[in-house]
Amino acid sequence: MKSKKEVKVINLAQEPQVFYGIQNKYDRIVSVLGGSLQVGHVVNSDIDLIEITRKGLPKSVILTVSSILGVSMEKMSALIHVSHRTIQRKQDHELLNVYSTEQILEIAQVISRGIEVMGTIESFVAWLHKDIRGLGYKKPLDFLDTSFGTKLIKDILGRIEHGVYS
């Protein structure tokens, strides 16, 4: 359901510099996903995120998020627990199931938070692909496939933000 609020069309993948001026966490998440038009819903609260999760995101957001993360579609399919072949069969406008949508939203929150903490998309993505001591010399990217993993990465980002060695 669209609200009467003006729909913002901001796409992080196409206009990363616009992202840095966005103060609202929900607008940042929508930007990561490709903008309000791609998401198909205005997001102003966690309730809106729940509605989107139940409805499903279009397959096209997978392409957007994989582009931001700098990963292949095979890796994205592993992160959201859907076979690569299933993703290939879907049209861009077809909706993903609740579980895949929820995981993509979790990943979008991590991306948003990571850019906020690291300062740039490039710095955050480079960090995601590095082996991190606090993760047993594993890459943060490899923890984005579960809600517990995304929470762990957000916690580490919070520690980094506050200057705690992580």
Results as ranks from 00 to 15, higher is better:
Met1Val: 12
Met1His: 07
Lys2Val: 07
Lys4Met: 11
Lys5Arg: 09
Glu6Trp: 01
Val7Arg: 12
Lys8Ile: 10
Lys8Pro: 00
Val9Thr: 11
Ile10Lys: 03
Ile10Asn: 07
Asn11Glu: 14
Phe19Asp: 14
Tyr20Ala: 08
Tyr20Thr: 06
Gly21Cys: 03
Gly21His: 07
Gly21Pro: 01
Ile22Thr: 07
Gln23Tyr: 04
Asn24Lys: 07
Lys25Pro: 12
Tyr26Pro: 07
Asp27Trp: 01
Ser31Thr: 06
Ser31Cys: 12
Val32Lys: 12
Gly35Pro: 09
Leu37Glu: 15
Leu37Ala: 05
Leu37Ile: 10
Gln38Val: 15
Gly40Thr: 08
Gly40Val: 03
His41Ser: 10
Val42Phe: 02
Val42His: 07
Val43Asn: 01
Asp46Trp: 03
Asp46Thr: 13
Ile47Phe: 14
Ile47Asn: 14
Leu49Trp: 09
Ile50Trp: 09
Glu51Lys: 15
Arg54Ala: 11
Arg54Glu: 15
Lys55Asn: 13
Lys55Ala: 09
Leu57Ile: 09
Ser60Met: 06
Val61Asn: 01
Val61Pro: 05
Val61Lys: 01
Val61Met: 10
Val61His: 01
Ile62Ser: 02
Leu63Gly: 12
Leu63Glu: 14
Thr64Met: 10
Val65Leu: 05
Ser66Ile: 01
Ser67Met: 06
Leu69Arg: 00
Leu69Asn: 04
Val71Met: 00
Ser72Val: 07
Ser72Ala: 06
Lys75Asn: 04
Met76Phe: 00
Ser77Pro: 02
Ile80Glu: 09
His81Arg: 14
Val82Ile: 15
Val82Arg: 08
His84Thr: 08
His84Pro: 07
Arg85His: 11
Ile87Asp: 08
Arg89Trp: 08
Lys90Glu: 07
Gln91Gly: 14
Gln91Phe: 13
His93Ala: 14
His93Lys: 13
Glu94Gly: 03
Asn97Tyr: 06
Asn97Thr: 02
Tyr99Ala: 14
Ser100Cys: 02
Ser100Ile: 04
Glu102Ile: 02
Glu102Tyr: 03
Gln103Asn: 02
Leu105Arg: 00
Glu106Thr: 07
Ile107His: 00
Val110Trp: 01
Ile111Gln: 05
Ser112Thr: 12
Gly114Lys: 00
Ile115Arg: 02
Ile115Tyr: 02
Glu116Arg: 00
Glu116Ser: 06
Met118Tyr: 10
Gly119Trp: 05
Gly119Thr: 04
Thr120Pro: 10
Ile121Gln: 06
Ser123Ala: 10
Ser123Cys: 00
Phe124Met: 06
Val125Met: 13
Ala126Gln: 12
Trp127Ala: 09
Asp131Ile: 03
Arg133Trp: 08
Gly134Thr: 14
Leu135Phe: 06
Leu135Met: 11
Gly136Asn: 05
Gly136Tyr: 06
Tyr137Thr: 01
Lys139Glu: 14
Pro140Cys: 01
Leu144Ile: 13
Asp145Gly: 05
Thr146His: 04
Ser147Ala: 14
Ser147Trp: 04
Ser147His: 14
Phe148Glu: 15
Phe148Ile: 08
Phe148Thr: 03
Gly149Ser: 13
Thr150Asp: 09
Thr150Leu: 09
Lys151Phe: 08
Lys151Met: 05
Ile156Arg: 13
Leu157Glu: 13
Ile160Thr: 14
His162Pro: 04
Gly163Leu: 11
Gly163Phe: 07
Val164Pro: 03
Tyr165Ala: 13
Ser166Gly: 01
Ser166Asn: 06
